[in-house]
Design a binder for these strands. Structure first.
Lengths: 174, 174
DNA sequence: TGCGATAAGATCGTATGCGATATAAAGCGC
DNA sequence: GCGCTTTATATCGCATACGATCTTATCGCA
């Protein structure tokens, strides 16, 4: 039984009272408040989506990235790791372990392309396709509290944002 | 030297040609294409933001969540772990290691609240405040390719989306 | 043809997220 | 004031992300 190594040894002879009175809000100037950061809005919305999907994904026994991979493969079977990575915005270092896990679970097969042994082609198994159908109902549109047209518009705006960011980042890398 | 345990043992006597001809796109019906998922747009936009911020954060020697924590603490010093967690949408299991790392780097202090020894109050050090100032210039508005009013509107919409999701998730948990 | 360059995946180490659980302090009921 | 519950934080294990690096296969070209 290890002790918490947190500062639970707080000495009571502390000089000042650390209650609410000690919290000093700071003035805002320009884009300073966390709440004004678009990146933080996206970051926290992503966390919220993950939690919202959790219950449905648990029923399928999948994690969110695993589910995305299944969806992407259902749309187009036999993709290489790179092709799948382009769609998911991930590279092999992240994707390979996910795919190996899904293969181990019996939802897909990974086989070297005979025409180019460097490439690995991924194909869903029958179980994988069934899983995709089973999750077809998962729909959080209602939970977003958005009207269908708002939903579609926001979706487009976020996609545009993402693509602009990627382009700008690639440019700045020279 | 371990061998890759990937399927690099592809037998050349494979029955079918696995080139592009083998990739079968499927029909769309309802919300099926990955590109139509708002959750995926947010997920991938979050990845894109992380990569866009990478260069600036590397200069500060911070990761993204570490930076968010510094920003949140700069706005209000002396918060407890729970209070900070509410703002960052994280809990102690995620936050504690991040805060311990930042403490170890000398950017903040963690001390038990003498008035309630269960709580830990977090305060930026002078170095932490300097770091916040140093990162003040990081601004990706240009990289988003959005006009200021579009930026602000999108930010609001994403925040609304996030809050709706959280509310809906909490409700369904009964 | 042979060999350096490039490409595709995989591996490893580090840093989040997060569910489950542990630990310690406060609250509270009698 | 003694136990039981609740609260605040921390720990642990698993699953991503991702930079750096490795292995193997293919390409380019002299």
């Amino acid at each position: 039984m290890k002790l918490n190594d947190g500062p639970r040894n707080g000495s009571r002879d502390n000089s000042r009272d650390n209650s609410k009175a000690n919290q000093k809000p700071r003035p805002a100037a320009g884009e300073r408040r966390l709440g004004d950061f678009l990146c933080f809005a996206v970051y926290s919305a992503n966390l919220a989506f993950g939690r919202a999907y959790k219950k449905g994904l648990d029923e399928l026994g999948l994690t969110y990235p695993q589910w995305i991979a299944i969806v992407a493969l259902w749309e187009q079977d036999g993709q290489t790791v790179s092709e799948l990575g382009e769609k998911m915005f991930l590279e092999s270092n992240t994707l390979t372990p996910i795919l190996k896990k899904l293969e181990q679970m019996g939802y897909l097969r990974r086989q070297r392309d005979p025409a180019d042994e460097r490439q690995v082609r991924i194909s869903l198994t029958e179980a994988g396709r069934r899983l995709r159908e089973k999750g077809m109902h998962m729909n959080l549109v209602a939970s977003t509290g958005l009207k269908p047209d708002e939903f579609a518009r926001l979706q487009e705006n976020v996609v545009t944002l993402r693509d602009n960011l990627i382009k700008a980042t690639a440019e700045k890398a020279e």
